[in-house]
């Protein structure tokens, strides 16, 4: 590496990188900014449509007297009906007027399911788990990037593999969440919990995000295989791990806001 100082026309005069960043990484940042605009437009649309409906009133929820981890299917099943089959919670809340087409459903009444805990009222627990899975897979990704900066090929393989597993776990969780929502009767045009726009936005935005996660997993697998083949060791740098890592962290970042808007607000 030369230590001589060379005269350049100016910072932006060419012949150097003003941001001290490679072409590929700069372009990844530009892409992520444009993708952030796309997701922002979806979330802005969500925010406007969400508040064009009145919220479910607190008194309506408190009157239900739902306990944490209470079996709501048993609680709302008609007397003499087998509570373990069929759906009893949604029809009961529709009869009570808590779920209706003219008010936005409270997310803790919609997303209260957890795998292997059928019928139990566990609001927002599953989506919190999904968030933690995605944050953890972001951590394994950044540890892979750090290993690449040290040129440690084996460690990159290990962390990339864990990131791929984390990505599949998240996709599995999302598939479960969708299956639940669809089997309750939600469609792009219909929603047993309230306004159809709620379901349309849920499928649209989490679907768009889920497809980003899927694309990220595919990119991670490509980088993992390239690394096993020694592509980056031969190239002399592991910046491809970093660039794909940027995309993966972005997907995590978007989920933070999807979580905030769909499940909290």
């Amino acid at each position: 590496m030369s230590t001589q100082t060379i005269s350049k026309a100016s910072t932006w005069g060419g012949g150097n990188s003003p941001f001290n960043v490679s072409y590929g990484k700069l372009m990844m940042w530009v892409f992520l900014l444009s993708d952030a605009f796309t997701f922002s437009s979806l979330l802005i649309g969500y925010g406007a449509i969400r508040y064009s409906y009145p919220s479910t009133e607190l008194a309506q929820i408190e009157n239900l007297e739902l306990g944490f981890a209470q079996n709501v299917q048993e609680k709302f099943a008609a007397p003499g009906v087998d509570a373990h089959h069929g759906e009893h919670f949604i029809p009961a809340l529709r009869d009570l007027g808590v779920f209706n087409e003219f008010q936005w459903p409270s997310p803790d009444l919609v997303f209260n399911h957890f795998p292997f805990a059928h019928g139990l009222h566990l609001p927002l627990i599953f989506v919190s788990l999904m968030t933690l899975i995605l944050i953890l897979s972001s951590v394994t990704m950044v540890l892979g990037v750090e290993a690449g900066q040290r040129g440690d090929q084996k460690a990159v393989s290990k962390w990339m593999l864990l990131t791929i597993i984390g990505g599949f776990m998240f996709l599995g969780c999302q598939a479960w969440e969708w299956t639940n929502f669809i089997s309750a009767g939600a469609r792009m045009w219909a929603n047993p919990y309230g306004p159809p726009a709620f379901a349309a936005l849920f499928f649209g935005v989490t679907g768009f995000h889920g497809f980003h996660v899927f694309s990220g997993v595919v990119l991670n697998i490509i980088v993992y295989i390239n690394n096993l083949n020694g592509t980056y060791a031969k190239r002399g740098h592991y910046e491809m791990v970093e660039k794909v890592g940027l995309y993966w962290h972005f997907v995590d970042l978007v989920w933070v806001f999807v979580f905030t808007f769909f499940y909290l607000i």
């Binding site: 003003p18 941001f19 001290n20 960043v21 700069l26 940042w29 992520l32 900014l33 952030a36 605009f37 922002s40 979330l43 802005i44 649309g45 925010g47 406007a48 449509i49 969400r50 508040y51 064009s52």
Partner: peptide
């Protein structure tokens, strides 16, 4: 990273946050 790269990414997003709050209010 270089500070100006950070500004290039973060400043446009500041407008988005404003827009987000604005449209939630408009709704």
């Amino acid at each position: 990273e270089h500070k100006k790269l950070g500004y290039m990414i973060i400043l446009p997003m500041a407008f988005i946050i404003f827009f987000l709050y604005w449209m939630m209010y408009e709704g």
